[in-house]
């Protein structure tokens, strides 16, 4: 049964002729129509330094986290929105869509299957975007360092701004990491998006090395 579904999923991505309700026939190519495979480009910072500094200050003080818990560490994100830790007072907010998020918190181990979603979500995020690697697993694989389906170093696949060690780190550690990220953004060093665009081939080669069923264009925004 599972095999049949898998086949069907691949068939969805093939080029085909679709008949509209009016009887008009047109060709659908999902790989072209549903995705964009334009390569990312470098968005240099504003040349007027005070403006860029001001924008960076606002970026640091308004952090929209993508609500996508990739591993067990994501459970440490939840208490932040509760009354006890209340991350909102530091300008942290959660968004349900990568389009509107600026910070991606990789919550712990990234399995190969999740990696595909991580890459796609990361690429869909706009603008200066930042990544927090939560838990030891994102640094060196942690307790999964010799696992058959877990990546060891996250920054081989997407650029990471701040790491948080521990298994599991406390929510306070996450708050501290957000504080570190703010300092990094304010100093203008958090240019992960441009780093990704500049070293795009290297990142893509690394991603393709571990993701075997690459059923998407190279770059899906």
């Amino acid at each position: 049964m599972a095999k049949m579904n898998y086949k069907k999923r691949w068939a969805d991505l093939e080029k085909r002729i679709v008949v509209s309700p009016e009887g008009e026939e047109f060709e659908v190519d999902p790989m072209q129509d549903y995705f964009c495979d334009a390569k990312p480009r470098v968005h240099p910072p504003n040349k007027i330094a005070p403006l860029e500094k001001f924008a960076n200050w606002c970026r640091a003080e308004s952090i929209y986290i993508l609500g996508f818990g990739t591993g067990c560490g994501a459970i440490e994100m939840r208490p932040l929105s509760s009354a006890m830790y209340d991350a909102y007072r530091f300008g942290v907010n959660w968004r349900a869509t990568p389009r509107q998020a600026t910070v991606f918190v990789i919550g712990g181990y990234a399995s190969v299957k999740t990696m595909k979603r991580i890459v796609r979500s990361y690429e869909q995020m706009q603008g200066p975007k930042f990544v927090l690697g939560l838990c030891s697993c994102t640094i060196n694989g942690g307790m999964y360092w010799d696992s058959y389906n877990t990546v060891n170093r996250l920054d081989h696949y997407i650029p990471v701004d701040v790491y948080i060690t521990g298994c599991m780190p406390r929510p306070e550690a996450l708050l501290d990491a957000i504080d570190q990220l703010k300092k990094r953004i304010k100093s203008g060093r958090a240019e992960g998006q441009n780093k990704y665009a500049e070293n795009f081939e290297w990142y893509k080669a690394n991603q393709k090395k571990i993701i075997k069923n690459w059923d998407m264009p190279d770059y899906s925004w």
Binding site: A83, Y88, R89, G127
Partner: peptide, 26 residues
């Protein structure tokens, strides 16, 4: 009401300026 300290008073300013200052758009 939810017994939190809550956002800073000028948080909406940060949010809106940050959003206008985004570099890429689709």
């Amino acid at each position: 009401v939810g017994r939190r300290i809550g956002i800073r008073l000028f948080q909406p300013y940060f949010n809106i300026i940050r959003q206008w200052a985004t570099r890429s758009a689709i």
